[in-house]
Design a protein around this nucleic acid. Structure first.
Lengths: 257, 257
DNA sequence: ATGCGGCTTTGATCCATATCAAAAGGAAAA
DNA sequence: TTTTCCTTTTGATATGGATCAAAGCCGCAT
């Protein structure tokens, strides 16, 4: 069974916020007061939801959702990062997204999963059987609304990514990605630019980056090098980027005329 | 105000079907008994929903959803076809989907619309203000479930498209598209192949096709010509395709090894 | 019928990115 | 420290699809 702490956040960056529960109690696990879904629920409701979840711990590299398999579960990530992807028989891979702590996952599925999911590092998550979560909806309609919000936000991101994959050049893809990643890390509010010289962790291999952006690792590397040469970013080490001139980055990303 | 007929179908091809209303009355407009959402509702509920919708008629070429504008409405298409797309300032365009009769539209939006929508021919649709539809949820939770199903199905399609745009070759994109279009036209059930020599209407310009598949019109034309040369399809006229050998098409689309 | 204009196809060439190859880090083991 | 192995960067070359150009096709108005 899962704890309040583990359920506390159903994906932070949502387009529509639910009202906070005014007198939320502090978390049994960590003492903090959690934002997100839980604050919209009563204690009884929370208890109800908690019973529907199993806690799971995954080693790095574990593929815990398999494309094409029967879609049996939803997941809420508490710790670690997950790669979502689709593959072709000859090994080509398209990463469709990355999910970190607070992300809710499993919506892109009908009868069967449309994607695979793999732990990038040590991952802890809450697992809900689809049937039990659907049953919970009867008691907690607010949860269904929350899921709809999550799905709608996913759709916005998916359409952005289609524009990127279908119509942007390599350097535009890299620039777009860096800015989107900054938003994701909450280095800046959605739709705003980060401050000049903002520092950003980027815990992805070049291979992941390439498979997410529809490029090869060589092109990713070359594009990053070019942005560095042009003084728009700096790369102190492989997993860190300094956004020296975010404005310039944004002009490239949006193909400003 | 909209009629039962106009509301009768909230997008046909759904991954999860709602139970039919056993004793659905026939449609006031057309006399037929409609499948889809309406059959899951009582007459009172239907009446309630009907009041929340305005009927709208659009001339070909009308852009009735503008990317970046405040997202105020959802739409349910009754007649005609719609292009959904995103653009870059220099005119590059990525079509993210096509919506025909029965399609529900407007989910890919947070505060603002993530896409634009344009009537491809004469379109009739029902328009719901977001606020009023949200209000309807209180009375008709089944509607919210339905919308979640629609959104989940959209996500499945979006991920398929990301794989196509990020990792498939031109000819694979064309082959994938033709099979997906056949499913959409219900020439074959989802996940199955059409019968050999199935005939298919394709009411899209090469430009639309190119902007949907992330290619140029020349490449679209060349790829279609090649499939024709190889005896896999036939093209009796611009807006009609014969799927001579669907199995071969599928092997190309899925990059079978 | 004839001619015009827009779409589509086909051909020739170019170029952005992939592919192939090798050198340069950088972390962990010996 | 040195070696090994793996990832990343950089360089050289190839190529799939874009771009540029022209010819075909077809509907429509005259």
């Amino acid at each position: 069974m899962a704890t309040l702490h583990e359920l506390s956040e159903f994906r932070r960056p949502l387009p529509i916020n639910l009202a906070n529960r005014p007198t939320a109690s502090n978390c049994d696990d960590c003492g903090a007061r959690h934002s997100g879904l839980c604050n919209a629920l009563t204690d009884d409701e929370l208890e109800f939801l908690t019973r529907a979840a199993q806690r799971v711990s995954l080693a790095p590299g574990t593929v815990f959702v398999e494309e094409g398999e029967k879609a049996s579960y939803f997941y809420n990530i508490n710790q670690g990062n997950v790669r979502l992807f689709k593959s072709l028989p000859d090994g080509r891979r398209q990463i469709t997204g990355f999910a970190g702590p607070g992300y809710f996952l499993g919506l892109a599925a009908g009868e069967n999963n449309a994607f695979s999911a793999e732990a990038m590092d040590h991952v802890k998550l809450c697992r809900f059987s689809r049937a039990s979560l659907m049953a919970v909806f009867e008691e907690l309609p607010v949860l269904e609304r929350k899921l709809l919000d999550v799905a709608m936000h996913e759709l916005v991101l998916a359409q952005q990514q289609m524009l990127l994959l279908g119509r942007k050049t390599a350097i535009e893809r890299i620039a777009s990605f860096l800015l989107a990643w900054a938003e994701r890390l909450e280095i800046c509010p959605a739709g705003r630019l980060p401050a000049p010289n903002a520092v950003m962790k980027l815990p992805l291999s070049r291979t992941d980056l390439a498979d997410y952006l529809g490029l090869t690792i060589e092109t990713v590397s070359r594009s990053l090098s070019q942005l560095k040469r042009d003084g728009i970013i700096d790369i102190p080490n492989i997993h860190e980027i300094i956004l020296t001139r975010p404005r310039a980055l944004s002009e490239i990303a949006e193909a400003a005329v």
